[in-house]
Nucleic acid binder design. Structure first.
Lengths: 205, 205
DNA sequence: TAATGTATAATTGTATACAAATAAATTTCA
DNA sequence: TGAAATTTATTTGTATACAATTATACATTA
């Protein structure tokens, strides 16, 4: 059941369904060889992701997932992640920050896309999870799932790998100096840059 | 089905269930005289509200809804509503703003709690909906549902009615002057004040 | 007795059957 | 013909039955 969820999730993100097309329970049941009951549960999950809209007695239709959507998600992400930074920056351990910085420097010029995508996730996840705010963490994770494809694709270009990691280092430095205002300003720019890179990847779908 | 959702929703918000208590499908079915199928759907909704946690094969348990939760929700709300303001402030119509201001002034000294609660909702909803950002709107509406009880209770005290409405007027004025920075600063303080008032109402449960 | 294993009960997960609502096709009548 | 009414088909909503999993109670053994 978790499986058919992620299959549908990825298909919608990838734009494999025409916008506003109706997802009929029976059709999906047949397609995945399961009954309608778990299909309905999956459709409800997708509705909460904002990927489909369910109307009473009319079923689920696929919502458009366009550049506007990605733009909006990045703006929301920025607001929430800046809130995270405000909360976590003053309490992060110097040791962990230095460790992260060392890792960033070590891998600055590496080619492997996965290394950079993982490092990116590691820093952001650390800042977010350190807040200990369960709702905030859950909301950001949900947003990340929606844009994860675009995030990793962004690291395909060599210069974005390097510039993103440099921005990470600057952010870590600002936090280490306990300069939260500067850290937030750098993070704001960093997420704006990420947004532009993500939008640049859109044509690939 | 929508009915049993709101009943359970309100019971959890009101703290009528001990934290971590398990909500068994069969028990709820019997209680509401419906089958387990719609009960399961409702529990999934409540999970998305962050009010229960569902674990595979273990069912749903009620999550604690404490002062910490309310504090966190207000902080998230503040971040997202400031984003809304940034987007909508430059494009709001002078006419509608003046109309709202007039309404605020007219009702400034009214006793009726409902009048003030409605005015509060009217302004905030206006600023939020004018952004046209569907996800942002949906997220804020979900947060509002969680704190609505505390919002209205806050207007029971006479001085909060008046001060909140005065803050609304100041915010409208700043927007009218197209001074978004000032509007955001005033909104930040306004939501912080609302948070304190909401937290002050907590003991009533 | 305490720990482990086994049987039983309770609970969740899924499939299927039927009811209710909606959409599509057909008929009726001006 | 064409609009309204009626019937039929399709689809979603709910109830129920059964399967799979987890929790509990009991028995066994060291």
């Amino acid at each position: 059941m978790i499986d058919i969820y992620s299959v549908l999730f990825n298909k919608i993100i990838a734009g494999e369904y025409p916008a506003n097309i109706r997802l009929k329970e029976e059709v999906l049941s047949a397609e995945f060889n399961i009954s309608r009951t778990p299909v309905r549960a999956v459709l409800q999950q997708l509705e909460q992701d904002g990927l489909v809209q369910i109307s009473p007695n009319k079923g689920a239709k696929v919502l458009p997932f366009s550049a506007d959507e990605i733009e909006e998600i990045y703006e929301i992400r920025k607001s929430l992640e800046l809130l995270c930074l405000e909360i976590s920056a003053p309490i992060l351990s110097m040791q962990k920050l230095l460790e992260l910085k060392r890792e960033m420097i070590t891998n600055l010029n590496k080619e492997d896309v996965k290394i950079h995508a993982d490092l990116d996730a590691k820093l952001h996840d650390y800042l977010i999870n350190s807040t200990g705010k369960k709702r905030l963490i859950q909301m950001l994770n949900q947003l990340f799932r929606l844009i994860q494809k675009f995030r990793s694709l962004g690291f395909m270009q060599k210069d974005t790998k390097e510039s993103a990691t440099k921005e990470h280092i600057e952010i870590i430095d600002a936090i280490s100096m306990r300069n939260t205002v500067l850290a937030k300003e750098l993070m704001r720019k960093h997420i704006d840059n990420s947004k532009m890179i993500a939008l640049g990847q859109l044509y690939k779908f």
